[in-house]
Design a protein around this nucleic acid. Structure first.
Lengths: 206, 206
DNA sequence: TCAGCACTATGACGGCTGTCATAGTAGCGG
DNA sequence: CCGCTACTATGACAGCCGTCATAGTGCTGA
């Protein structure tokens, strides 16, 4: 997750909150440190986020959801010939690149918020739901553009994101990208098989 | 995750720690509450867990890994005719049953420990790695017993667990079992296709 | 009876948390 | 100069945290 040249201090705080959350979890992320890392004064916290930590966390999660959704479109544009497996490989590669370059410290902030706050703060749970929905929607739209039938697009997008999120957990625990590359390799053919209605042979039913 | 009649107070504390962690996350789980929910005296904490919270969390994660591994064998025995998709469906059903009966408060304690402590406490990260390894090993062994070629068993087991873990996150965020049932439906055929070396036709390339 | 051990009981400590209260500064229109 | 608004700056607060120190209980064995 890049983004060094954020606009105002408010945006920088949301961004640094997301960064901290995905590394340390929500509970271990302190407001004071969020402000410090953003180069923002501590007093601005209560000014920009009168709803307190809950609001800050929710906005960080929303930011992550928007970021993930936007990345999908960019991946699509970068692919020479767009295929579902190619898109998935790009989504995963973003993570393997980070892990190999910077180590396995970071995870997905939406996952962290879900694990830490889904039960305690319903507004945060809702923010996570929205983030997943936006992300899934972007992936499903991309699949549809590639020729995946409309009814299959959303389930497959959900499967892609599920597998990615789970593989991220395992990768962090193992300090290895194995689970991530495994997901790409095993899921790729399944994804591409959903494209063609005019393929030679084709899968029965439907 | 059942287990009401635990033996001693020590085991009860480990169990209640796992329960609390999977609901609230590691950070929001307090030692005092762990003891209280276990019906154990607070003073026993420093007696049984001189390594402090870190040790308690690690043992809770280890317990969860053993539990998940053991469940696999029991699922296998319960299936009339064992198939990979049947095993996966059973693994997922354990969660959908819980969610429909008790709500979406709980997640996987190994996932929670990874998100909250993978960076801060390496011994906990290691415990999570071991838990995933044990779980994956059990699933891979089951797949092998079903006729899945040895080289494919572990990748597929990893994919199953990745998808399950990710779908759990989405399910909690959405308060819906949709992502879980989607994973079963979409992944099932892929898993079963890995069984037969003597299937009619078969997939090319290999 | 006394030691020795496993376990329990309780109070205190320092540290960090999120939040609030209060005051201060900068820029702007008039 | 004023007032007004946006933002900053600190200090204090109560609360919870994990941990430690210390003492107490009850059983075992000699």
């Amino acid at each position: 997750m890049a983004g060094a040249a954020e606009r105002g201090p408010r945006e920088r705080m949301v961004f640094s909150a997301a960064q901290l959350i995905r590394r340390e979890g929500v509970g271990a992320t302190g407001m004071r440190e969020v402000a410090a890392r953003a180069g923002a004064p501590r007093g601005s916290l209560q000014h920009y986020f009168p709803g307190g930590k809950e609001q800050l966390v929710n906005e960080a999660v929303g930011w992550a959801g928007r970021y993930a959704g936007n990345r999908v479109a960019r991946f699509l544009a970068a692919l020479p010939e767009p295929t579902p497996s190619g898109l998935f490989a790009e989504m995963v590669r973003q993570w393997t690149d980070e892990y190999e370059a910077e180590g396995f410290d970071g995870g997905c902030p939406v996952a962290a918020a879900t694990v830490d706050r889904a039960r305690a703060a319903d507004s945060t749970r809702q923010a996570a739901e929205d983030a997943f929905a936006r992300w899934t929607g972007a992936v499903a739209a991309a699949l549809t553009d590639m020729g995946v039938p409309g009814e299959r697009a959303r389930p497959l997008a959900t499967l892609m994101i599920s597998s990615l999120e789970g593989a991220l957990l395992i990768a962090r625990a193992e300090r290895s990208v194995r689970a991530l590359t495994t997901a790409v390799r095993e899921l790729g053919p399944l994804l591409d098989a959903a494209v063609a209605p005019a393929a030679p042979g084709g899968t029965a039913g439907g």
